[in-house]
Design a protein around this nucleic acid. Structure first.
Lengths: 194, 194
DNA sequence: GTTTTATTATACCGTTCGGTATATTTATAG
DNA sequence: CTATAAATATACCGAACGGTATAATAAAAC
């Protein structure tokens, strides 16, 4: 990793939280120079434009989440416990190195769906990939005899994701932690009922 | 309603969809003059600043939703059917005069939670009010004998809202209508299990 | 150690931003 | 019909926007 790559990485690391909090249009080049301590010239020497930084920041923020999830998934043995990882991670997201500003998928999806095709595509890919992982866990749990054969994997996956994302929105908005716990309990019940 | 009030209303009606699609920071005064055909002077003769327009637009967009919901609620007799109104309205939101740009609560919540306290407060109030309405329906349904006495009204209300909002996000992002239907089916099952 | 290359800082570009003072037009009242 | 008040348009403000050419600096290669 040469100097240029290190600086690119540094810029992404420092601006990623800003993009996740303020959004794409809400984050200015001044925000970016403040966050990094670098000048505009330095940033544009490493990235073509603001878009490229934003896209890299989304990847960075998303990877933070997927890394946590993957690590916790590996710790669990049963597929039920693996599914419950999503509940426990989001319930205690403060215990993990979670992106500042909340879920990058939710933030990007709601801002970019009508305005920014490239970011929208990245958010879409993230959702579809997430859905695929959950469906895979469910199918394997069915093969394994853990879950009933008549469980609808896609429906369960989509409902889990929807509830979790809605939960994040409500909890962050209202600031009520017991709201988050209550909703996550519902997801837990759902997983335990498979 | 004099001319000034009519113009204020007109400005809100024409800019509300823009704010809901592009967000607060994403909507410029030029967007507003384009949407209305008025000049900046006209808009600022009727509103103190961009903030005031944005807040009025949120109220306008939210009222569109609550009006639809209230009308459909009145059509139903049982409390179970009233709860299912949320499922059917969001499932067929194209059949109703739904705000362009999607759910204003979701859009405002994710943009404003870290950046705009006044808008954040409005979104928070909307969520808490929504929760209150659902809880009220559930409690009355319990008194009525429609629902089991051991139903947790708050948990059910919060989970319904979270799942619906997450559903809107996923459906709008991916463009897959069957995703929306599938998730809403889960909410329907939940209501039918009360 | 010098030259070449990569990286960062400076200074500036034109444009758009939110906002405003003032002039002009339109509606209302006497 | 005229005087007054309300509403709208024009023209402009300073500041911040995203972006860039170039100069200065630091790193790498020979």
């Amino acid at each position: 990793m040469n100097k240029a790559e290190k600086t690119k990485q540094f810029i992404v690391e420092m601006t990623a939280p800003v993009f996740n909090e303020k959004g794409y249009t809400g984050t200015s080049l001044t925000d970016m120079t403040n966050a990094t301590g670098l000048t505009k010239g330095s940033i544009y020497g490493n990235f073509a434009n603001k878009d490229e930084v934003a896209l890299a920041c989304f990847d960075y923020n998303l990877k933070k989440v997927t890394t946590i999830i993957r690590q916790e998934l590996d710790k669990q043995k049963t597929y039920r416990d693996k599914l419950l990882v999503y509940v426990h991670v989001y319930e205690n997201f403060l215990k993990h190195p979670f992106p500042i500003g909340g879920c990058p998928i939710l933030n990007t999806a709601t801002e970019a769906d009508d305005t920014h095709p490239l970011l929208k595509q990245k958010a879409t890919d993230a959702i579809l990939s997430w859905k695929g992982v959950i469906m895979d866990l469910i199918e394997k749990g069915k093969d394994n005899g853990e879950f009933s054969e008549d469980v609808n994997a896609e429906q369960t996956a989509l409902t889990m994701i929807a509830t979790i994302e809605g939960c994040i929105m409500i909890a962050k908005l209202t600031g009520k932690m017991n709201y988050r716990n209550t909703i996550m309990q519902s997801v837990e019940k759902m997983v335990n009922g498979l």
